[in-house]
């Protein structure tokens, strides 16, 4: 049961074996080639010129120019990553690190834009009077109509405010339209 304590000789043997295995892949240093790198550099310069030209002289609809510029930039970035930074010749692990961080960036920008875009639309509708405050369930087609209704109701209540029949009247209404109780109540609260 004492495998847990190998002797010095056993350990030495294991280490020597491991060391000899490691020496095997020690000299795998990849020397950067000259011509491919020059080709990459020239491509990068050409792509820079292309970016400027497309942005200046081609007018795409919507965010077309932006997307085109980003596609070119991504292509350039990939070239730098793959060749100048040796990812193509390196261990896969380094590429995984970059991929993970790029993935995190995409998540970060994507979700933030998703939310803020929706809220920009929401704000726009609110300013246009298409929706009112008070929650999503109270989205109504015509805010002006509601405003008029409210004004009328307000006036109605104001007229009757001093009268004794006020409460009796409301109770009577509630009794007739049972289902509307909640809604009525909510609107009364708003005043």
């Amino acid at each position: 049961m004492s495998h847990y304590h190998p002797t010095r000789e056993e350990e030495k043997a294991i280490h020597e074996e491991l060391a000899s295995q490691e020496l095997g892949h020690e000299h795998h240093v990849h020397v950067t080639p000259y011509w491919p790198m020059l080709a990459v550099f020239v491509t990068l310069v050409i792509m820079t010129v292309v970016t400027v030209l497309t942005a200046k002289f081609i007018d795409l609809p919507g965010t077309g120019n932006l997307l085109l510029a980003m596609v070119i930039a991504c292509f350039k970035g990939t070239l730098v990553f793959a060749y100048f930074m040796h990812l193509r010749y390196d261990k896969l692990l380094n590429t995984v690190v970059v991929a993970a961080s790029v993935f995190a960036v995409v998540l970060f920008i994507g979700f933030s834009m998703l939310d803020l875009k929706a809220r920009a639309a929401f704000n726009h509708e609110y300013e246009a009077g298409e929706i009112t405050t008070g929650g999503m369930n109270r989205v109504v087609a015509n805010a002006n109509e509601i405003a008029r209704e409210k004004a009328l109701e307000h006036g109605h209540h104001g007229d009757e405010h001093g009268e004794h029949g006020d409460h009796a009247d409301e109770h009577g209404d509630d009794a007739h339209t049972d289902g509307d109780h909640g809604a009525d109540h909510g609107q009364d609260d708003d005043h």
């Binding site: 942005a55 980003m70 970035g77």
Partner: peptide, 11 residues
């Protein structure tokens, strides 16, 4: 910079 340049200066 490859990304900043088109974003800020061009599009």
């Amino acid at each position: 910079w490859i990304f900043l340049f088109p974003l800020l200066y061009l599009v």
